[in-house]
Simulated assay, not measured.
Amino acid sequence: MKEVLDFLKENKVFYLATTSGDQPHVRAMGFVMEYNGKLAFCTSNQKDMYQQLTLNPNVEICCVAANYNTLRLCGKAVFCTSAETQRKALEVMPALGKMYAVGDGKFEIFCLDDAQAVCQTMSGEKKTLAV
């Protein structure tokens, strides 16, 4: 998991895909943390992404490094929102405090279950990473 977490943090922006019906939606993300041995992310329950995740929790994330190595990560979003997860998220990325607060009724945290990650180089070499 450390290698996946480091890749996402080092490259700062990654893209998370959800679906609404049969329409895919991709958005840029920048927050990730480890929580109870899983990758965790955040959103607002007032965003379309939250609604999409509640209807279909299957997601895929893609991140590209400066050397063009690509990380593809898929899994199932499981909400784990609590005061503890919200506090930890705000510690990891204090800038989130401009949008969210612990117990504000909109700040949601989700972890990835059944996560699988593959890193691929520009030459096509693939490596499965532990998540």
Rank of each mutant, 00 (worst) to 15 (best):
Met1Ile: 12
Met1Ser: 13
Lys2Glu: 12
Lys2His: 13
Glu3Val: 11
Val4Glu: 00
Phe7Tyr: 04
Leu8Gly: 03
Lys9Pro: 09
Lys12Arg: 14
Val13Met: 09
Leu16Tyr: 08
Ala17Arg: 06
Thr18Ile: 05
Thr19Lys: 07
Ser20Thr: 12
Gln23Met: 14
Gln23Arg: 15
Gln23Ile: 12
Gln23Asn: 14
Arg27Trp: 08
Ala28Tyr: 06
Met29Pro: 03
Gly30Leu: 11
Gly30Glu: 11
Val32Phe: 04
Met33Val: 01
Glu34Cys: 04
Tyr35Ala: 07
Tyr35Phe: 14
Tyr35Gln: 12
Tyr35Cys: 07
Asn36Lys: 15
Lys38His: 07
Leu39Pro: 11
Phe41Lys: 10
Phe41Val: 06
Cys42Arg: 02
Thr43Cys: 03
Thr43Met: 03
Asn45Gln: 09
Gln46Gly: 14
Lys47Ala: 03
Lys47His: 12
Asp48Trp: 15
Met49Asn: 12
Met49Phe: 14
Gln52Ser: 13
Gln52Cys: 04
Gln52Met: 12
Thr54Val: 15
Thr54Phe: 02
Leu55Phe: 09
Asn56Met: 11
Val64Phe: 12
Val64Gly: 06
Ala65Asn: 10
Ala65Thr: 11
Ala66Asn: 11
Asn67Lys: 12
Tyr68Gly: 06
Asn69Val: 03
Thr70Lys: 09
Thr70Asp: 06
Arg72Ser: 05
Cys74Tyr: 11
Cys74His: 13
Gly75Ile: 08
Lys76Gly: 11
Ala77Tyr: 02
Cys80Tyr: 13
Thr81His: 01
Thr81Arg: 08
Thr81Met: 03
Ser82Asp: 03
Gln86Leu: 09
Arg87Ser: 13
Arg87Cys: 07
Arg87Lys: 15
Lys88Tyr: 09
Lys88Ile: 10
Ala89Val: 05
Val92His: 04
Met93Ile: 07
Ala95Asn: 14
Ala95Tyr: 14
Met99Phe: 13
Met99Glu: 10
Met99Tyr: 08
Val102Phe: 06
Gly105Thr: 05
Lys106Ala: 02
Lys106Asp: 05
Lys106Ser: 10
Lys106Tyr: 01
Ile109Glu: 02
Phe110Leu: 08
Phe110Met: 03
Leu112Met: 01
Leu112Asp: 00
Ala117Lys: 00
Ala117Ser: 00
Val118Glu: 10
Val118Trp: 03
Cys119Asp: 11
Thr121Cys: 02
Met122Glu: 10
Ser123Cys: 10
Gly124Asn: 06
Gly124Glu: 01
Gly124Pro: 01
Glu125Cys: 04
Glu125Asn: 06
Lys126Arg: 13
Lys127Asp: 04
Leu129Gly: 01
Val131Lys: 07
